[in-house]
Design a protein around this nucleic acid. Sequence first.
DNA 1: TGATTAATGCAACAATGTTGCAATTATGAA
DNA 2: TTCATAATTGCAACATTGTTGCATTAATCA
Lengths: 139, 139
Amino acid sequence: MNKENIYQNIRNQGGRLTRLRKGIVQILLAEDCLLSSAKLLSRLNKSNLTPNRSTIFRELLFLTNNQIILKNNISGVDYYEIPCDKHHHHLVCLKCHAISKVELADQLQKQEKKIAKQNKFKVINHSLEFYGYCRKCQV
Amino acid sequence: MNKENIYQNIRNQGGRLTRLRKGIVQILLAEDCLLSSAKLLSRLNKSNLTPNRSTIFRELLFLTNNQIILKNNISGVDYYEIPCDKHHHHLVCLKCHAISKVELADQLQKQEKKIAKQNKFKVINHSLEFYGYCRKCQV
DNA sequence: TGATTAATGCAACAATGTTGCAATTATGAA
DNA sequence: TTCATAATTGCAACATTGTTGCATTAATCA
């Protein structure tokens, strides 16, 4: 997903291309991984955008509802990212809370089918995070 | 883990066997799956225990810190359970929010080693939840 | 350019969890 | 059993994250 595609996508859903909206998209694209609303806000401030906190939440809700970004709650905080080509999961540092992507050659798709059959549970999506210590935070 | 073992465990860590603490352990044992602080409180009330909300949180912190129970944050809410013999993951219903256990013949242990090597990330634990619709909530 | 309505700021609220402090109670020792 | 000690508790106040109503502002299209 590149910037222009996303902007078009927003227009197609009846959304307006505000400075804030474009700013959020650019920051998330540059981040290329999960970002919290608080960090997003502080980055917006650095680029001269000072939206109200409630506006950020409403904006993230709009983008999430329109599938333009993905939401993932980790340890009680909502994080957001632009969807990637490759399905992936996350490494979460227990010390500095940095989050990075990890691609697994996993069989979770297969597992989901098994689950559906064995538990009569219709799986919509899954969430897999590995908690530990990143390179910088190891001893 | 049976009740008496757990009580002994609590004593060994210098904890006192209060009515509340025993009540919490019994409810979590009976539940045999993740339970939120709010649901725990309402079950305690049914058994004539009416602790303050802050006491519940402190109690759950104590039990978690002493490895007597496990904490798992799902969609922004902390859930607790007595550790099981078998490692497992969870099915989370997007409608009624019921949580059930699922045991996977997964290779996450193997994956963790790969992650450590490839990302220089020391994995401590992981969290895998499948979101979808339980039997009752499907159409 | 003007009308329409999406987007915004503000303030008040809600849910979950935390903390300081004084009062209570479980426990081990006498 | 009784007492001293320190763990546990209730209460109230607070913190963080996220939500909502309403009046104002601004992006968009005709």
